[in-house]
Nucleic acid binder design. Structure first.
Lengths: 234, 234
DNA sequence: GATAATTAAGGTTAAATAAGGTTAATAGGA
DNA sequence: TCCTATTAACCTTATTTAACCTTAATTATC
């Protein structure tokens, strides 16, 4: 099966060259000029690697990177950008990037960097995809592919949203999860920023997870959440 | 355990800066000016990542990369070089490199690239791993990862801000903590410099810590604070 | 130089605000 | 119809602000 590349770039001329070159190399390329509904896009197309331009008309590539990283912890992301300042590079890696290439770049350099990223990610890629079968956290087990949670010896069928949010939490265990990022990732736009919808799901997840005292969803008011999983249960 | 870095660089001035900066960040750095017996070196030191200068007096970094790659298929290797031609980059990746940084580079960029490589290789422990599980100060115990304080045999749930400030104090035990630095670190800007907000939190922390008489937050008027933890309780 | 006045820095307390939590009701899709 | 997702109304709490108090450091006066 062909290796799949998701490529977000708004400059049509550059985009065409890159796309054609990549296809010539035997890749399957999905090109978009903007990053609307990126989470669904990634979920549907299931790329092996993402190449994101940073300067985009509506959003910027960095927040796209963040959204992808939230749901796909090990998917390689290469940022392409004219921004050459150190702080931009730092931002790139902080936004989930696994490589950062400064424009203008040569096509050959892009190629070897893509191959390198695929090689690095590839060793354990023989799994169906990068969503794990089972995540064990003490007495609680989460089966993200089956939308099931095993807690207190009971199987709980999770809804789509519940499962999606729990996945993001699991992918960011013992790290700060930014509330805005979470809303962006799950709902994809700004309109939910003052709704209580997310809180309702947090409450449900807390209830499900209450079976395991070593797991806790801690609120960082004004920031987001911290999914604390004690070392003893990992 | 510390993350180990093998660093081959012949320019003494640059080498010193890089080594010191890396050590300050908590890495264990093994620096050599040439790559003789590189395979044994790697075998003995067992680095988590290698940083190789390309232009070396006897061998060149690329062949070192190849040698390392032969015996260690997944060890991250970053090449540092003034060579900026595309063909050199290609050669770098072909020689087993997993990243390629062009000189001159900023120390910050090197840092984030190292962290990125470690993360991708799976060696890196996530953010919270440099946060200790437990800090014992006499009768008081602080669990920064869980946002909990055990004082007078009671568990006190700390808020985000409380925990953040107490962490900073613990990291600077028996040292002067500059008030402006503290405000900057916690709130990130200048706008709180004349607010009483910080003082409110100091008061709360003093109250929590009052259970242990050998701990004290001392005010240095016009300077900041001194978090005094008597030797007897450490 | 000793003492009092002044002032700047920080402490205390309570109230205000903003951010989330909770619960139940409603909408909306297979 | 059943189940999930969303909204609405109301509740709780962390964080910030405001007002006033205390103390250390500085300056003025004797």
């Amino acid at each position: 099966m062909k290796t799949r590349i998701l490529y977000i770039e708004d400059e049509p001329f550059l985009a065409r060259i890159v796309k054609e070159t990549l296809e010539l190399k035997g890749y399957e390329v999905h090109h978009k000029t903007d990053g609307t509904r990126i989470t669904e896009l990634v979920g549907d197309f299931r790329p092996d690697i993402c190449i994101l331009d940073v300067m985009l008309p509506n959003t910027d590539g960095f927040s796209l990177g963040n959204m992808i990283r939230n749901t796909h912890p090990r998917l390689p992301i290469i940022f392409l950008t004219a921004k050459t300042q150190t702080e931009d590079v730092i931002k790139g890696f902080a936004s989930g990037g696994t490589d950062y290439l400064k424009k203008p770049f040569s096509m050959e350099e892009l190629m070897v960097r893509i191959e390198n990223q695929l090689r690095m990610a590839g060793a354990e890629k023989n799994n169906t995809d990068n969503v794990p079968e089972e995540i064990v956290m003490g007495k609680v087990r989460f089966y993200p592919r089956k939308y099931e949670l095993l807690a207190a010896d009971k199987v709980i069928k999770l809804s789509n949203r519940e499962s999606q949010i729990l996945s993001i939490f699991c992918n960011n265990r013992n790290n700060t999860i930014d509330r805005r990022m979470l809303l962006q990732t799950v709902w994809g736009d700004d309109s939910f920023f003052n709704s209580r919808n997310l809180d309702v799901y947090i409450r449900k997840l807390r209830e499900y997870l209450s079976a395991e005292p070593n797991i806790e969803i801690i609120t960082l008011k004004g920031k987001g959440y911290h999914f604390v999983v004690s070392a003893s249960v990992i």
